[in-house]
């Protein structure tokens, strides 16, 4: 399926140590109908940790949006919100 929402989970060491390791479970955490609409990839350092305005690690990029202090719950909420905005999913 084309046009899946891109989700990049930072696997850089800083993000990983600061709680990002847990985000590796994102795919199995998401309900199946949402998991089917996203393309989850591990990404090398998103370079957010070197910016002062990006907030705190761990970082995940959902579409063009950077999620700081990312948790499974928080990322799932952003994914749902963006899918809804694009009209690709309704609760």
């Amino acid at each position: 399926m084309e046009n899946k929402l891109s989700v990049k989970v930072c696997t850089g060491t800083l993000c990983y140590v600061m709680g990002g390791a847990e985000l590796q479970l994102l795919e199995s955490y998401l309900p199946a109908e949402i998991a089917a609409r996203v393309d989850i990839k591990g990404a090398p350092c998103l370079d957010c940790c070197n910016r002062t305005d990006a907030g705190k690690a761990p970082f995940v990029q959902v579409g063009d949006r950077i999620v700081a202090e990312a948790s499974l719950f928080k990322v799932a909420e952003v994914i749902k919100e963006m899918l809804k905005a694009e009209g690709k999913w309704a609760e």
Binding site: T11, G12, T13, V17, P44, C45
Partner: peptide, 14 residues
């Protein structure tokens, strides 16, 4: 050791 990598600015993958 993870904290030491972060402190040294080492990205393990690199």
């Amino acid at each position: 050791i993870g904290a030491m990598f972060v402190a040294a600015g080492i990205d393990v993958a690199q």
